[in-house]
């Protein structure tokens, strides 16, 4: 019975045993927490120490300190702009186009089964 739960997951080309990993993870976690425990725990709460670092500038309002979702991954969107723009153009939000795509796929599949 216990065996069934401990069995290694074998994909035919590789292995994965979650239980072993979890055990190792927990053990190492404990060791690391102990090592970390040697460190200094203290800091001065509520002083300038805990303010966000902005190269010495005054901190902005909280809402402005939060980087918004649409600003993330700039580097990626910048270098993949052409793909994204093309895809955005594809998503018109018009139901007629949705049906048109359906017809297009039907055409392609007809090609696959060898009718056209």
């Amino acid at each position: 019975m216990l065996d069934m739960f401990l069995q290694t997951f074998d994909t035919g080309n590789g292995f994965w045993n979650p239980i072993v990993w979890i055990v190792a993870f927990v053990v190492i976690f404990l060791i690391v927490v102990i090592i970390r425990g040697f460190g200094n725990k203290n800091y001065k709460k509520g002083t300038g120490q805990t303010k966000a670092f902005l190269s010495g500038n005054q901190e902005y309002e909280k809402t402005q300190m939060h980087v918004k979702a649409s600003n993330l991954y700039w580097g990626w969107t910048e270098s993949m702009k052409w793909v994204i723009d093309g895809l955005k153009k594809m998503h018109t939000g018009n139901v007629s186009d949705y049906v048109l795509w359906f017809v297009v796929v039907m055409g392609i599949l007809l090609l696959c089964v060898g009718l056209i």
Binding site: Q49, T50, A52
Partner: peptide
Amino acid sequence: KLFVKENVIPEN
């Protein structure tokens, strides 16, 4: 050295 330093947790 890092272990001796203070472990600051920012307010944000």
